[in-house]
Amino acid sequence: MSTINFAAREINFKIVYYGPGMSGKTTNLKWVFQQIPQNRKGEMVSLATEDERTLFFDFLPVDLGEVKGFKTRFHLYTVPGQVFYNASRKLILRGVDGIVFVADSAPNRLRANAESMRNLRENLAEYGIKLEDIPIVLQANKRDTPDALPVEMIQAVIDPEKRFPIFEAVATTGMGVFETLKAVSREVLSRVASS
């Protein structure tokens, strides 16, 4: 980990990867961790079960660099997607600045995608936040699945009003991973600058 000069001004953003169990949230973070140069990232922390399902969260700090005298950092988190971990999921949302919703393109996960989006809306509401109050980017992951559903169909269940940008991805090979992260980061930055 690089040393941090706290006398300098710092701006930190928290981005949370949300979505149903096994949709590829942790895989997104792993890819980012592998691809980012050493001096721009910290350690990746994963609190997972023995079979690699996220138990509490994954965490990866990414250093964007210095802008106008502000050291700018993104803290990336994933939540546990499995339904019964909702108490932990709610905690991770505290103080969130932007969300990546990772949907699974497999036909038998369509309903899980919809339920996870509803769960996100409910959990945000407990913090007094509405979906439209916060930058959200959608990712249709696992596009390499042989019977992957059309993106429009996935969008129709998680965002029927087409409010959020959607990206196609294959997180295992990195396709779409940076595009998604860049899009949400940009939106987060623009909200801060205009507030």
Partner: peptide, 25 residues
Amino acid sequence: VSPGTLGIDSEYREGASALLDELFG
């Protein structure tokens, strides 16, 4: 503080945006 008072402005946003391109392509 509210972030608005920190002096974050559109210039900051553009600078950060350029760094995003550099880091994520």
